[in-house]
Design a protein around this nucleic acid. Structure first.
Lengths: 200, 200
DNA sequence: CGCCGAGTTGAACTGAATCAAGAAACGTGG
DNA sequence: CCACGTTTCTTGATTCAGTTCAACTCGGCG
């Protein structure tokens, strides 16, 4: 019963693409499983193939890549959001992206093979898959345009406005590279923004 | 007969996702149409909803956004590649992205409504749609990681290696913002790379 | 032939990176 | 619950790469 409730988050996430009928849900639900990760634990390592499409039930996940010995964070996911190395999941190729639990994390996951079965068995499955991917695509395009057009400070302000409850859960050392700056610069950006707010 | 041949590029583009049967193709083909644009002409303006999913038959298209009175280019498409303001197309919302013909351009296009009909009428249609979107997604994720990890010089070298035939067709003033630098800096980057090559 | 936009080059400037040191927060074990 | 050690965050000083601005070259086109 308790787990049942948790799975709902997966349905809700899917329903951002399109409404799910109860019958659809009944065919999906048996394939879901919960996976737990401790803070700091790897969820996907470099070179692994991502086998799961997951939604975060609890916690915060960061996505990052290695570059010259440094980590560059390119995404974070929180409760109710999809959380998967999607390009690897879709292409069945080794993941270039690493995933790690920023906090203790619980994921609601469906295995790739089970998803393919759903696709094969029902046109609705295909449709849900398409709409989910479309939603994911739109998100990526949005982020890419933001990266190209906004300064680190503008990106930070955007996060403050859109996800005030999330921004404090991401350690600044991770957030910095997401905004394309060094941690020291992010520190100065925050000071600048904060002192401006006080003045007004 | 001539146009028939041109449409093939659309099929080829789709088949990067999954093979298309002749029957599938026969249901798609009647919905395709060719659209021509002169060099410099707008294909999508800011705020328009994108109604077409297109593949480039001839020419080069640039995708860009406005920022503080400047244009920032975030994508280019060439012969055989998809070319659409996809987030707008999928979401039916006004496009934030502008599209323009860099050279004289011919697009092979299918209208949104016709695509939806294909989706409704066949599970295969759904599948093709899903796989196409997946391919598009993978491309976007790849580009986003490149933006985060590579310097302008590294991005340029990457283009040189991967698309040597395309890079010269993009005016440097457009290419610069794609690499996140000013045209003057791109000029210096090219000189640096070229003089290194000579030395070796 | 002369115009115009694109590209190149140089010089000065600027904002972020780097390096280094100190302050604050965290958590681990006594 | 406190003490200590580790990590994260902040702050300052310096360096450096890219921007900006301006002048100049080049090539196409009427």
């Amino acid at each position: 019963m308790y787990e049942n409730c948790k799975y709902q988050l997966f349905r809700t996430a899917l329903e951002e693409g399109a409404p799910i009928t109860d019958e659809n849900w009944d065919t999906i639900k048996p394939h879901l499983k919960l996976r737990h990760f401790n803070k700091g634990e790897a969820i996907i390592e470099h070179g692994q193939v991502e086998n799961y499409l997951s939604v975060v039930a609890k916690g915060c996940v960061r996505f990052f890549v290695h570059k010259d010995g440094n980590e560059i964070n390119f995404e974070f996911s929180f409760e109710g959001e999809f959380s998967t190395s999607y390009a690897s999941f879709l292409s069945r190729r080794p993941s270039f992206v690493l995933m790690e639990a920023v906090e203790d994390v619980t994921l609601i996951s469906i295995h790739y093979d089970n998803l393919q079965t759903l696709y094969k068995d029902s046109a609705t499955g295909e449709k849900i898959g398409r709409l989910t991917t479309e939603g994911y695509y739109i998100w990526r395009e949005h982020r890419e345009i933001q990266l190209l057009t906004l300064s680190a400070e503008e990106l930070y302000i955007d996060l403050l406005n859109q996800y005030p409850e999330y921004i404090n859960r991401i350690p600044q050392k991770y957030l910095a590279s997401y905004l394309q700056v060094q941690p020291e610069s992010l520190s100065r950006i925050k000071r600048r923004i904060y002192s401006n707010k006080k003045r007004k």
